[in-house]
Every structure is written in structure tokens, then in C-alpha cells.
Design a binder for these strands. Structure first.
Length: 423
RNA sequence: GGAGAGAUGGCCGAGUAGGUCGAAGGCGCUCGCCUGCUAAGCGAGUAUACUGGGAAACCGGUAUCGAGGGUUCGAAUCCCUCUCUCUCCGCCA
């Protein structure tokens, strides 16, 4: 959420920056609501001031019969206040809804562009593996090895659900543990295991609501939702809190399953594990001082990259342009891993700085020291990494001509010493 | 699922025959004084949001005693709804 005062005082700037994302802003509507809101507020509050003053005087008079006329007068004032407040409530609601549906302003360093095609490649790590044979896509490898069962996943639930079996299930679990150990050990994050179902306030705090309800699984009859990412519960840990400056940055990592409806992606990535309604992810989340958030973003990105380096998987880092960054983000880097079975790079992590956009929605502040005014923190997060897609990358990159798959050394301790998945 | 208790400021904890309560007291914290250090002692201060004025320091207004409604000239205090916490019973991984 943007600061209403900031919008009011920087109308043109806000308009042009949002335009670069491809989203407009209804400035006239905002101006009208904002003006009317403040008019009503002033009128109502000055009447309240009068009522408070007179009520105070009435309280000092013992014989109330002497002040009957004043009481009657205040009865009318109260009626007037009530009707003003009723109107104000409506305006406030519209005003809040408006603010909650305006996306974040991109950081000035973000390249202006219309779509994915305008994203900028920042760097590459490693090399594409070479094969003396035609590399297969992971769904063929997974099925022939008996570790991924797409048919039974669909039987149990429906499309975009998969059953893992044997070494496949073990490999997924190994990746989760490997990532968590790396982030908690070497990178210094604290491990969190949050609820996988959250309420409406949490979804609003990070920006999924009110605009993107169609992407969420909702619990019937309740304002509860299955989390689409650990970002939601983990960022909302500190909703409504004032943190101590000395405690910043706060760095959390969490493994959770993620649930997404994938509305509007019919026909896309229908085969394999790439796009599932339920997938596993290890997430990294930071709360930082505003001045530190961009260096912390670089560090977070590096922490996510480290997972791929240790697994020996070739990847590139892409900086998203203004037209491609998400609703809440001010700046985003995607890490894309090489998938030889499909001869393409696929997103395996997305690392963003939300600046104070989520912090303002969720009321997450800090006080630099005892005397300082509370300020909004900056929130950041990134996948570290998407586990299912990491498994995909392992299968496709480490596949052998005989259909078996080698397990990289870093992962072997988590696989009970297993060096290869074969039939 | 059944029965009961409770939710007050950073923390603890007063406050229910409605008014002088943004809220006693204590702790903590900040600043100052004092004591050769520490401790103790003394004094002052110590919420947030919105809003009006001001270049600013700051000054004024409104709201906030779990949340939302209601009664009243006036509500932390009365009424209704909801949420959460705790205790006991039942059930259960």
C-alpha cells in the first residue's frame, strides 16, 4: 500500500511511475475521495469537540434540570455526528479499497519495459551440460524410474497433482532438508514452521487480497485460505508490531507446501511438475531497515543462488522490468535454472524487495532506539528454492543415457549415501 | 462438543450505583540531580494513528481500555454480536 499523503503530494510522479508498470491510477477518483474524506472528518471532529466540551460542562452541574436545553442541543449534535460518520464510513471504505488495489511503485533502478521480453539478464553461472544422447524431459524420466506418478496424482485429486514415490519422495525431502540446513546454518536464517492456512488479514498484509482472490484456495465457509507461498504467514509474523532497531535485519526461512489455483493458465505446462496446484518451497524472508534493504536483497539473492551452485546446476539471474514485476514488489530478480530436457531456462526463484509496501499494509514498524519515532520496515522475500522445480532440474541435468539419474555430492548425505537413482 | 473465567498503556496491575480516566499504582526505560565507582535515593518525562495550523521546533482537534454495533448530553464502565486466551469435562493425532 502506498502512503495516501505521498500520493496526494506527488500525483504526477505516482501516475507516471505506475504507468511504467502498465497499470493506471484513477487520479480524479482519488482526489475526490481524499477531499471529501477530509471535509467530513473535519466537520465531524469539530462537532465532537463541541459535544465533549458541553458534556464536560453538564457534568459539573448538579441540577440537570438547569441544563435541559443544552442536553437537547447536544442530542441534535449527536444525531448530526452520526449521519456524518455514516457517510464517512462509506468513504473510508472506498478510500481503503482504492489504496489496497494500487500496486507498488517500481524502484528507480528498474528497467522500464512492457513484458517478460524486456527483462534483463544480469549474470550466468555454470555451463549447460552436454549430452551424447537426446536428453529427456523429467516427466519421462520420473515415470520410467517409478518415482513420479502423474496418473495416480490425478486420480487422487485431479489435474496438476502428483504422487511421489520411493527415491522421488526421498529426493524431495532431501532437498527440503538440504536447503533449510544451508540457510539456517551457513546463511544465518532462523527456521520457521508456520500454519499453512491463514486468515484474510494475513492475505491482505502481503498483498494477495483483495485483488487476487481468484488465485487462492479458500476454506469453505470461513475467511481462511491455503497459503500460496510461505511469504504470507512468515511476513505476517510481525503484523501490527513495532520491532527493535537492534534486532534488524530479521531473517527467517521456512519450508511450506504452497497451494495455487493457477486460474488462467489452462493449457500451460500441462505435463510434469512445473506447474502444480500444490508444491513445496523453501522461502527466505527478511525484515530490514529501509537504508539496508537493497544490499539485503543482493544477499538474499546470493543465498538462493548458493543452493543451485552447491547442486551444480547451471542458471541465470534476470532482473524483471517494470511491466513484469509483481503487484507488491518494488524490484525483483528471478533465478532461472537450465532444463536440458526442455532446452529452456525456467524460473526457480523470485527474490523481491517490497520496500514499505507490505509493511504499511501489515503495520510492521521498528524503532531505531527508545526515543525514535516508529518507522516502517522494508520486507523482502525470495524462494530458496522452489523444491519441485529443483527436483525437475536435478532429473533433467543429471540424467544418464541408461535413464538413471546421478545425485550430486551435496545431496548424497541427505539420501542416505545414495549416488544414483536407477530402476 | 459441554461448563465456566477473562481480554486495560512496553510489562504487571487498579478502575463496574456512567462524567473530573489516555486512564491510579508499580516495574521498565529516558533525561537531570545527588553519592569518589556500583547499588540505593530524589525530580521530570515516557503510546499510537488520523487530522488542522506552521518552513521547522511545536501547537490545536479527534479517535483508541480485544473487535464491531447500540443506549446516553456523556461509556474502560450498561446492552448486543464476534474474535482470542485460560480452566475443567468429553473426544482425539
Amino acid at each position: 500500500m502506498l502512503d495516501a499523503r505521498f500520493i496526494r503530494e506527488n500525483l504526477e510522479l505516482v501516475e507516471s511511475r505506475l504507468k511504467s508498470r502498465g497499470t493506471g491510477i484513477e487520479l480524479d477518483g482519488f482526489r475526490q475521495l481524499d477531499t471529501r474524506r477530509r471535509e467530513l472528518m473535519q466537520e465531524s471532529e469539530s462537532l465532537k469537540a463541541l459535544r465533549n466540551k458541553v458534556s464536560d460542562e453538564i457534568s459539573k452541574v448538579k441540577d440537570k434540570s438547569l441544563v435541559q436545553d443544552r442536553i437537547a442541543e447536544m442530542r441534535d449534535v449527536s444525531q448530526k455526528i452520526k449521519s456524518l460518520d455514516d457517510e464517512l464510513r462509506g468513504i473510508d471504505e472506498e478510500f481503503d479499497t482504492f489504496l489496497l488495489t494500487v500496486p507498488n511503485i517500481p524502484h528507480h533502478s528498474v528497467h522500464v519495459g512492457a513484458s517478460e521480453a524486456d527483462n534483463v539478464e544480469i549474470r550466468k553461472w555454470g555451463e549447460k551440460p552436454e549430452f551424447a544422447f537426446e536428453p529427456k524431459p523429467h516427466w519421462e524420466l520420473g515415470e520410467s524410474l517409478g518415482i513420479l506418478d502423474f496418473e495416480r496424482g490425478a486420480k487422487l485429486t485431479g489435474a496438476r497433482f502428483t504422487l511421489y514415490r520411493g527415491a522421488g519422495a526421498r529426493l524431495e525431502r532431501a532437498l527440503i532438508n538440504f536447503m533449510l540446513d544451508l540457510h539456517t546454518g551457513t546463511h544465518g536464517y532462523q527456521e520457521i514452521l508456520p500454519p499453512f492456512i491463514v486468515n484474510k488479514e494475513s492475505m491482505t498484509g502481503t498483498g494477495q487480497l483483495p485483488k487476487f482472490e481468484d488465485d487462492l484456495f479458500r476454506i469453505d465457509g470461513l475467511d481462511y485460505f491455503l497459503i500460496p507461498t510461505a511469504e504470507v504467514p512468515v511476513t505476517n509474523i510481525h503484523r501490527g508490531e513495532i520491532l527493535k532497531g537492534a534486532d534488524l535485519p530479521i531473517c527467517y526461512t521456512a519450508y511450506t507446501p504452497c497451494f495455487r489455483k493457477e486460474a488462467g493458465s489452462y493449457g500451460k505446462d500441462t505435463r510434469g511438475l512445473i506447474r502444480q496446484h500444490q508444491f513445496n518451497k523453501v522461502e527466505l524472508v527478511k525484515f530490514t531497515r529501509p537504508a539496508d534493504s537493497y544490499s539485503e536483497l543482493d544477499a538474499l539473492l546470493g543465498n538462493a543462488e548458493e543452493v543451485l551452485r552447491r547442486l551444480g546446476l547451471h542458471y541465470r539471474v534476470v532482473e524483471l522490468c517494470t511491466g513484469d514485476i509483481g503487484f507488491s514488489a518494488a524490484k525483483t530478480y528471478d533465478i532461472e535454472v537450465w532444463l536440458p530436457g526442455q532446452a529452456t531456462y525456467r524460473e526457480i526463484s523470485s527474490c523481491s524487495n517490497f520496500e514499505d509496501f507490505q509493511a504499511r499494509r501489515a503495520g510492521i514498524r521498528f524503532r531505531e532506539d527508545e526515543k525514535a519515532k516508529p518507522e516502517f520496515v522494508h520486507t523482502l522475500n525470495g524462494s530458496g528454492l522452489a523444491v519441485g522445480r529443483t527436483l525437475v532440474a536435478l532429473l533433467e541435468n543429471y540424467q544418464q543415457e541408461d535413464g538413471s539419474v546421478l545425485i550430486p555430492a551435496a545431496l548424497q548425505p541427505y539420501m542416505g549415501g545414495m549416488e544414483r537413482v536407477g530402476k
